[in-house]
Amino acid sequence: MSKPKPDKEYSEKVKKVTPNSPIIKDCILAFLVGGAVCTFGELLFKLYSSVPMDEKSAKTLVSISLIVITAILTGIGVYDRIAKHAGAGVAVPISGFANSVCAPAIEYAVEGHVLGTAEKMFTLAGAVIVYGCSLASFYGMIYYFFLGGKI
């Protein structure tokens, strides 16, 4: 199949006319909201630690709490309104991952619990899982073999 040659003059024109995303505003909001999410996580950690709980369990519980809160906010249709302004501020913390699993799970529920919700649940998060796990294994090996890490 022959492909058309891109019209360079037109591409330049498109670049000139198309407005850019407000990157400075996006960065400031992402910084503030992302910081707030992490501060909230830290508060939860302090709270759970005060219960008498070991550090590892408290940290796990913080992650679980953020995931549950995100799932609820996604379910009641609030999360996407926050994310529209906060952008990376809520996408980079674990809330972004939780939302990317919950959103398709809700969307495809109408196609059934097995072939809809369960199968489509990872359409967005799949990429994070595949590359996240691959990179974690890779760095884990470097750490173990070259930097004296121990299992």
């Binding site: 198309t18 407005p19 850019n20 995303s21 407000p22 996006d26 996604t74 379910g75 249709g77 999360y79 996407d80 926050i82 994310a83 529209k84 906060a86 952008g87 809520v90 996408a91 972004g96 939302n99 990317s100 919950c102 959103a103 398709p104 809700i106 969307e107 495809y108 967005l124």
Partner: peptide, 12 residues
């Protein structure tokens, strides 16, 4: 994307 997915859209 699914409706409830939190993303930002381009101005265009």
């Amino acid at each position: 994307y699914p409706l409830e997915y939190g993303g930002q859209r381009a101005p265009s």
